[in-house]
Write a protein that binds this DNA or RNA. Structure first.
Lengths: 211, 211
DNA sequence: CAAAATTGGATAGCGATAGTATCCAGCCAA
DNA sequence: TTGGCTGGATACTATCGCTATCCAATTTTG
């Protein structure tokens, strides 16, 4: 397969594909001559994955880079990779350990996780992500009580159990990983869209009828 | 309050505050002299809202602009504004009505919404958002069945009912709106963080124990 | 076979986004 | 009264994610 065909089949401009190769998102084709290289179906799959992560998942190139690097690293066992890939999924929150507000929020997060008995690594970036939201809520005068969190926790468990249960590890590694990453990112979007729709619906029910 | 005090209290550089004023995110202070203006608590509140939307919600300036414009427009009734503000919340998906894949996905979305009996406007951008995810999943060879969607729908309803029920319309308009917008955006982050944690937990339970 | 088109690889440029930095008067507080 | 803030305007910068151009080598086509 030539690069132009890859372009046609993926729907991405040739220049963009070259750019992805430069950035290490896509491996080079196998060179057959000084100005000729051959691409195969795996290049196309990879390209489709990148496209989905970029256009739907809205991930920056750097995150896609980390993900494909993890996918390509055969040493990482598959289930660990599911975590690794997840850590690469933005948006990332920088921790501010010197800020007392931030530290307090971070302690709240750790307390919640402990309370739930969840097995989440102590240094997992998701803890910072949640802490960041807590800080912002507090600063806006909207402190969080565990009770407000209940429905979100319940929802999260519901979804995660379903998702992890649905993972199939029988296929070959590359396919399994790409599928896992893609579903993770894409169903995040699905969830957000459904939440907004459900909000609109609930709002309509509450205000159009009784208001 | 002088701009430097606004800067200190909000944690944003003076130059950034000036930029936000230029961009219409923040109203000017009331001028007391050619080179003097006075800011008040509402400026500070607005600034804190902007900061939360930008840093945690990761919204582009343009979206924040739309939101504050809607907040400032007294003509928009409050519950309608909740929808309007939501529509401004990125990331937005451009519809591609000429693409048959996209149209099919969009029809699937409309069918799901109808099936659920949700009151979602026919032109709501959330429909496109969901359609976009459907297209991407299909393209990756991961078609969606209503069954896969179940847990997400259930989770979305759970959360939305809680959120819309918790809305208080008793306060003054500005406060109510800012609160509604902020909680919407910030709890989205909370949800995403919790989902990832729950995934890690479920993954640990499945693979560390039985794998 | 010759001309036209395509390719890989390298380098340069571009448009959008989100700020920073500078400058300049005018002002106010010590 | 003088030194440090202002407001307002303008200019500059950095990052991101591509695009465009160029070149020499190679196909493809007529």
């Amino acid at each position: 397969m030539k690069i132009s065909e890859l372009s046609d089949r993926s729907g991405l401009p040739v220049q963009t594909i070259k750019y992805y190769i430069r950035e290490g998102l896509l491996p080079k084709g196998t060179a057959t001559a000084a100005t000729r290289a051959e691409y195969d179906g795996r290049h196309l799959d990879r390209l489709r994955l990148i496209k989905a992560l970029r256009e739907v998942g809205d991930l920056p190139i750097a995150s896609v880079q980390q993900i494909v690097a993890a996918v390509d690293d055969e040493d990482i066992p598959l289930h660990e990779l599911l975590g690794t890939a997840q850590y690469a999924l933005g948006p990332g929150a920088e921790p501010h350990p010197e800020d007392p507000d931030w530290r307090a929020a971070r302690e709240d997060v750790d307390a919640v996780v402990a309370e739930l008995g969840w097995r989440v690594l102590p240094n997992a970036p998701t803890r910072d992500l949640l802490a960041q939201a807590f800080v912002a809520l507090r600063r806006l005068g909207l402190p969080i009580v565990l009770n407000d969190l209940r429905p979100y926790i319940e929802a999260a468990e519901l979804i995660a159990d379903h998702e992890v249960g649905a993972l199939s590890l029988d296929e070959d590694r590359e396919t399994a990983v790409q599928t896992a990453v893609a579903t993770n990112v894409l169903y995040e979007r699905v969830l957000l869209a459904l939440r907004r729709m459900a909000q609109e619906n609930a709002s309509a029910l509450r205000f159009d009828d009784e208001g």
